[in-house]
Each structure stands twice: as C-alpha cells, then as structure tokens.
C-alpha cells in the first residue's frame, strides 16, 4: 500500500538517528538533548493521536498519565521494591510505570467513555489531572509533597541511555499506532470517530475500542514519564503535573496532522524546535507566543502539515 513508504522511512530514520550520539558529543552538544525532548514529545503525541486523532475522543489527561509513570518509577526506586542493585533504566520498573497508568485509565475511562457525549471525557480527564495534582501536593511522605521525590542523581554518567530509550519509545509508539490503524482494530477506531451510531449498529462495541485506545495511550505516556524521571531525578508536581505535557502533544498532533501516522512526528519535531528557539531567545513572551501559534493553527490549518503536503503532491 501507499503507506508503506512513510513507515520504511521511519525505520531508516530511527536507525540513522541511533548513530547520532556517536558523532555528536552527547554531553556538550545541544542536538542530543533537543532530539531527546523531541522523541519524548513524539511518544506523548502518538498516544494522544490514537485516542483523539483516530477514535475521536479528546483527552486532556496526558500529563496525568505521564506523571503517574514518573511517580511509579520514583516510588519503586525509593522503596527499593525488588531489592535490586539498580533501578536506573530498569526495564521492569519502566514497564510497571506504564502499567500503573493503564489501571487508572481503565478506572476513569470506562465510566467516562460510557457516556455518549465526548465533552464528559475531555472534562473528566482534565479533572483527573487536577485531582492527581492535589493528591501529590498534599500527599506528605508518600508523594513527597510539593518538592516531590528526589532520586539519586549520582548514577548519572551520560545522556546516551536517555537518548536511545527515547528514540526507542518514539519508534515503539509510532509502530503501535501504525499497526493498530492498519489492522482491523484501526477500522473500528476510524468508524467510531466518524459516526458512532453507524459504528455500533454495524456491530462495533464502541466502549471496548475507546477504552483500548485510551489504555494504550496511557501506557505510552507512563513509559515516557518514567524515562523523564530518569532524566530529571526529581519527580514533582511542578515538573510533571503541568498542563504543558498535555497541551504540547495536542498542539503537535494537530499541527502535524492528527489521525495520521507521520503527522505527529512532523508536528513534534517542528514545535519542539519552535519552542526551544523561543524559550532561548524570547523567554519572557514564550507562553504568549505558544498561545498565538495554537490559535493560528486552528484557524488556518486545522488539518495539519501532513495533509497540506499531501494535497500539494
């Protein structure tokens, strides 16, 4: 099919990008950090894309699942849960940090998504993030309060594992979205986003697929939160439970083209660059600038770069 080409280029790009830490000094060059951040954004953006772009359910809770993943990693490490020598980039810890958000996604997703109207879902996920924030700030010893949980940063030696893990997760998230949407499940997701009544009277169990997409998205966000915890070494409400982790992915997905596989990658790359440049050169007006971009995009290219480009071809 036509879409085989983009995915081949994604595989090639991933392999080439994997070489960058060998040619660019990962501690001194800004490139490695910039790409690390871009990859994290791709993971979150693909997760949102699956729920909103393909299934039509607007979630405003990405930051909540991102934070849940980070807190899970921090708590496992702090509690020395498995009595292991090393929790730094420990795969078991990271996978658990993806699964804990899944449990929460099921718990809030099933009741919120049973309602027919999508607004409940947007507001419900937003509310969930706010509740989580209060719980984390007031959580005392358990959550570390406003300061959060400090992790032993002495284990840090280089940025390379962060870079490669982020690259891997971005690849994973893109692959998951690609295979979900090329499969029969994808047919159900698109049907739901187009017309729920027709989808359900054609035999699709709507709730099941909405919840599935939401749970996968929570898993990806949780993994990304875990990785980011290994980068910051401090898991706090201020670092994780902030709306930027929800709004950036929304913006990146819409700018790149939601409901497509490659759009979120383009959007993440472009906007991470734009935000990086503005936060360096125009730190004071950075938030206003982001707001203006959001409005302009919604007005002039609500379908994203990928579709502009496809039309041109």
């Amino acid at each position: 099919m036509k879409n085989l080409k983009p995915i081949t280029s994604v595989v090639l790009a991933t392999l080439l990008l994997g070489l960058i830490p060998f040619v660019s000094d990962s501690e001194k060059s800004y490139l490695v950090y910039f790409l690390f951040l871009t990859f994290c954004h791709i993971v979150l953006t693909q997760g949102w894309n699956l729920v909103a772009g393909y299934t039509g359910q607007v979630s405003l809770g990405t930051h909540a699942f991102f934070a849940l993943g980070a807190y899970t990693t921090a708590m496992i490490w702090r509690a020395d849960l498995f009595s292991w020598e090393n929790y730094y980039f420990d795969p078991v810890t990271m996978i658990l940090s993806g699964l804990v958000p899944v449990i929460f996604a099921l718990a809030i997703g099933i009741p919120l998504l049973s309602k027919l109207h999508g607004d409940y879902f947007a507001l419900g996920t937003l509310g969930f993030g706010e509740i989580l924030k209060v719980v984390c700030i007031k959580g005392g010893q358990f959550t570390g309060g406003p300061i959060g949980i400090m992790l032993p940063s002495s284990v840090y030696t280089t940025m390379r594992p962060h870079y490669w893990t982020a690259l891997f997760l971005a690849f994973l998230a893109t692959g998951v979205v690609y295979f979900m949407t090329k499969s029969r499940v994808g047919l159900a997701l698109v049907a739901i986003s187009e017309d729920e009544t027709a989808a359900s009277s054609s035999g699709i169990y709507i709730l099941k697929y909405k919840v599935l997409a939401f749970a996968i998205s929570a898993f990806l966000s949780g993994l990304c939160g875990s990785l980011y915890a290994y980068y910051l070494f401090q898991v706090s409400p201020e670092g994780f439970l902030i709306l930027r982790w929800t709004l950036y992915p929304v913006l990146m997905c819409v700018i790149g083209g939601s409901g497509t596989v490659v759009g979120p990658i383009l959007g993440s790359l472009l906007m991470t660059a734009v935000f990086t440049v503005t936060s360096i050169y125009l730190p004071g007006i950075h938030p206003i600038f982001s707001g203006i971009i959001i409005i302009l995009v919604m007005l002039f290219m609500p379908n994203g770069i990928i579709r502009l480009w496809k039309k041109g071809v």
């Binding site: 159900a188 049907a191 187009e194 009544t197 169990y205």
Partner: peptide, 25 residues
C-alpha cells in the same frame, strides 16, 4: 442490520473498508 435515512457511511474510508466493518464486526 440496517441503513439510515440520512446515509451514514464512513467517509474517510474506502468503499471496501466500509463494507469490511460490517463483515468483521
């Protein structure tokens, strides 16, 4: 099974994909 007075097809899909929805699900 049924059809609708105001046609409810999935317009972003191909004709075959539309029919596949009924066939699979």
């Amino acid at each position: 099974s049924r059809t609708y007075q105001l046609v409810k097809t999935f317009n972003k899909m191909t004709a075959l994909e539309n029919v596949m929805v009924g066939a699979i699900y």
